[in-house]
Amino acid sequence: MKVTASPFDNSFVYSCVSKEQWGHEQFIPEHVLAFQISGETSIYNQQGTFVLKKNRILLARRNQFAKTQKLPGSDPEYKAVSIILKTEDLRKFAALNNIICDKGYNGKSNIVLKPDTFLKSYFQSLIPYLEKPDSSNERMIFSKVSEAIELLLNIYPECKKFLFDFNEPHKIDLKNFMLNHYRYNAPIENFARLTGRSLAAFKRDFTEIFQISPAKWLKEKRLEEAHQLIHQENKKPSEIYLELGFENLSHFYTSFKSKYGMTPTESLITKNK
């Protein structure tokens, strides 16, 4: 596996893998513009599932949970280049270009685009930044990010609200949100952010609703579903641990045994006797 990124908070990221692999991050804090060079990416998010195919571009909105699966497919390797459109850079670009968005964005969180000649050439121009990240500086990075924004606005003017809506998530129903999103492996701070609360307010509201701390509830909820999937759907531990938000198989085994007195594999064998 080869991954190259710039030193400025990963403004540009290059991913290359030779076999199927799950992405590590499950929370998107900033807008992302990604070009699928080869292979494809399966994306599982709050709205459903879709596939980013070869030679397509994804514009993903900030503040959302998403699981990604990198698939080489018929290509020798999976390759993708991503640009992190940080809020601070977008604010700077908006100020320099007198861009004001009075209305919030209410459209899709993920938009798939077919790249034109300009965008294809743009991603090719990122190669030096990816191969020699230490040779670039902050102004060069911002210049390239600004170029990406200009190209997006040129071929897809409707994305203005998408890019320049700087409003944070508003306060929403915490119980309903948690029951629908507990499978995502993310810090508690991100759950608080997406429900429109400070960390302290989130913990307070959560405890009032569930009568348990967020961390303990997430662990228990995931283990209960794991037990159900193993016993009712005959699922193997290796098939479900990532889906349920566990960091690795070892952590899943340890947690499961602590709660049920046996490992997931032992539980599956006992069930099938």
Results as ranks from 00 to 15, higher is better:
N190G: 01
A201T: 00
L249P: 04
E224N: 14
G39E: 08
F191D: 02
C101D: 02
K216L: 09
K271W: 08
P133Q: 07
Y14C: 03
D9H: 13
G261N: 09
G245W: 05
K86I: 02
L151P: 09
G196Q: 00
T4I: 03
P157K: 15
G73E: 05
K132G: 04
A226D: 03
A95K: 11
S198G: 09
A186H: 05
I111C: 07
L218D: 01
V32P: 00
I99Q: 01
N45K: 05
F50V: 05
E138F: 15
H170R: 01
H227E: 14
S6A: 03
R197E: 00
Y78F: 15
I83L: 15
E224W: 05
T263L: 11
N154F: 08
L85D: 02
T263E: 13
W217Q: 08
H181Q: 14
I230T: 02
A186T: 12
D102H: 14
G196R: 00
C101I: 03
S146M: 05
I155V: 10
A80R: 06
E208K: 04
S267I: 09
D102V: 09
Q64N: 10
M1I: 08
N63F: 12
H231L: 15
L223W: 01
E30N: 14
Q228I: 13
P76K: 10
I84S: 04
I99K: 00
L199I: 01
D9I: 06
P214Q: 02
Y14M: 10
R197G: 00
N185R: 15
L223G: 03
N154M: 12
L242D: 04
P7T: 07
I212V: 11
I188V: 15
A60Q: 13
S143E: 05
L151S: 11
S74H: 08
A201V: 00
K86Y: 03
E40H: 15
K114C: 07
V32K: 13
F162K: 13
Y260T: 11
F12K: 11
A200P: 02
A192Y: 00
S146E: 06
E30M: 08
S135K: 15
S6W: 02
A5W: 04
L113H: 05
K175A: 15
K114H: 07
F246M: 09
Q36D: 07
H181S: 15
F35W: 07
N190I: 00
F35L: 14
I209C: 00
V32T: 13
I212D: 09
E25H: 13
R91Q: 13
I149D: 04
F210D: 01
T68N: 03
E147S: 15
M262Y: 05
A148M: 02
D134V: 10
M140H: 07
R193P: 00
E189N: 13
R62E: 07
E247V: 15
Y184M: 11
A60L: 12
Y241D: 09
I230M: 02
P187D: 11
H227T: 11
